[in-house]
Design a protein around this nucleic acid. Sequence first.
DNA 1: AAAGCGCTTTAAAGCCGACC
DNA 2: GGTCGGCTTTAAAGCGCTTT
Length: 301
Amino acid sequence: MGAPKQKWTPEEEAALKAGVLKHGPGKWRTILKDPQFSGVLYLRSNVDLKDKWRNMSVMANGWGSRERARLALKRMHPAPKHGESSMALSALSQSEDEIVDARPLAPSGGSSPNDGPKRSIMRLDNLIMEAINNLREPGGSNKTSIAAYIEDQYWAPPNFKRILSAKLKHLAATGKLIKMKRKYKIAAPSTLSERRRNPSIPVEGRQRISPRIDRDDISLTKSQIDLELAKMRSMTPQEAAAAAAQAVAEAEAAMAEAEEAAREAEAAEADAEAAQAFAEAALKTLKGRNTPRMNVQMVHV
DNA sequence: AAAGCGCTTTAAAGCCGACC
DNA sequence: GGTCGGCTTTAAAGCGCTTT
């Protein structure tokens, strides 16, 4: 790894958001060539834009930073002491495990995801095995076909592909699946069939689950993004360019205000509680000042 | 050109022993 | 018992290469 990390500045992030609003996600080269954004993004490649957008999307889907997780944890379990922290974490991970592997995937056949306890506990591990089993593809099934099968049979969360990738990687690493040329085969079918006969057999021990997955219903939703993109598409190129430029300017101004608010909060650190209340109040003020479009963009400021 | 994947870097958090 | 400092672990973020 030769090149040092090049951290994204708020201006670059704002330009990226505006570029995606104007051209749509996936048009990274187009965004880079756009003179409106090239001045800010001249240090970035199309791949940089793709990666950053992926990370930002992850944040928007609720895969928050550790800071957010830590704050949430503090609110749930205020200042766990030495020796108590493991208890608090285990309680948290338990609920998350239920949510992550169980909640998002429920049968789609007209029934709601809350269709009763017997089908509420469906683990992604089992679904992957089921998909590979039922697809019966020679040489195994690739991630796309597995995802297609599960999405066809069950309701999947917006970030399902990413969850699936991580899970496939984990299963391959633990030897439950064999990966060959991007295709996955079940390594130990006997174990699976035994588990089917006796569903009480745990698939595996409690996994450490990231807190981000169960928050895909907060902040920016896909429908909101689609709505905004549809609005942009209905505009003339001039209107779109003007709106994007305004978005960049508003985002920069909002971020400057947020930074100022943070500085003021730090100055009030004599009382941590008071500082936190101040930051939240400042955030509300910022959100209130922005247009509806900006509210979408500023969700995870 | 875009997407996917795997790796490294970095920073924060946790752990633990030494010291007062 | 409390705290300080060093070490380890973990996960986000960024980069490079490969595949589609």
